[in-house]
Design a protein around this nucleic acid. Structure first.
Lengths: 131, 131
DNA sequence: TTTAGTGCAAACGATTTGCAAAATA
DNA sequence: TATTTTGCAAATCGTTTGCACTAAA
């Protein structure tokens, strides 16, 4: 029943998510893909971002300030939010550490833990330099 | 310059956040505080939730689905979001584990890590029983 | 030619804001 | 009295949706 069809727009969105190191909001994705497809609509961007997230080809990151951000790197990893400049950066924890965190948590918990996502807060190196 | 004045409404919101074990949305806080102050407005609830968050007397939790939730427990702790029923639960990691996570992360990171918040995903014990 | 995807614009839910009135200090 | 907080309503922001049309299979 369920058929997924190719679309140029989706391909372009996916490509942008894969090459960028930023973690763009839907609107930032829209602004970028617009350069290639000037007629694309914001609705289409949202539909595709949600679709890609659903099929596991993108990740949605919620932060306490402002809208969600998207990431084309689907391997488990974590993020850092700079309290000063607001930039969202990748932050590596090796798989062992991630598993260790989940294991520690499972010890005190009744249900089943499948995954986890940690958001670190602090000051990024750029902001430290400037102060 | 900056003066903070007492307000009955803020006190009531704060009290509710401290006694509840749920992690209410702004609207849920509103519904509850309304029982004591029927004329309180949703705007006032939001203003106070943000104020409490800013002065460190509450925590704002962002999840990928729906609006932010609030927590009166300000000591560092983490959360679990059930993929089936959507409930948000407290999840204890002892302080040592939390510090260990931050230390592991700092090893591969250039900036300064002050804190972290982990959101675990999976299935809660209630949902496991039912299936 | 059937089904999925698009652009557009309107609708939506969550949150914020301007303002005159009320509460606090 | 001076300043903060409130209630209300309108405004804003991020996101979703209905629909007629276009692109892909």
């Amino acid at each position: 029943m369920a058929g997924l069809k190719y679309s140029r727009q989706r391909e372009s969105i996916k490509h942008f998510l894969m090459i960028t190191k930023e973690h763009p909001t839907a609107d930032e994705v829209y602004m970028h893909v617009r350069q290639e497809y000037p007629n694309i609509s914001l609705g289409t961007v949202y539909r595709n971002l949600n679709l890609l997230t659903d099929i596991g080809e993108a990740i949605k990151i919620s932060t306490p300030d402002g809208g969600d951000r998207f990431d084309g790197r689907t391997a488990p990893h974590n993020h850092f939010l700079c309290k000063k400049c607001g930039r969202l950066l990748d932050l590596e924890l090796d798989m062992k550490s991630i598993e260790e965190v989940n294991r520690l948590a499972a010890e005190n918990f009744d249900g089943m833990i499948e995954s986890s996502s940690t958001l670190f807060y602090g000051e990024c190196s750029d902001c430290i330099k400037k102060s």
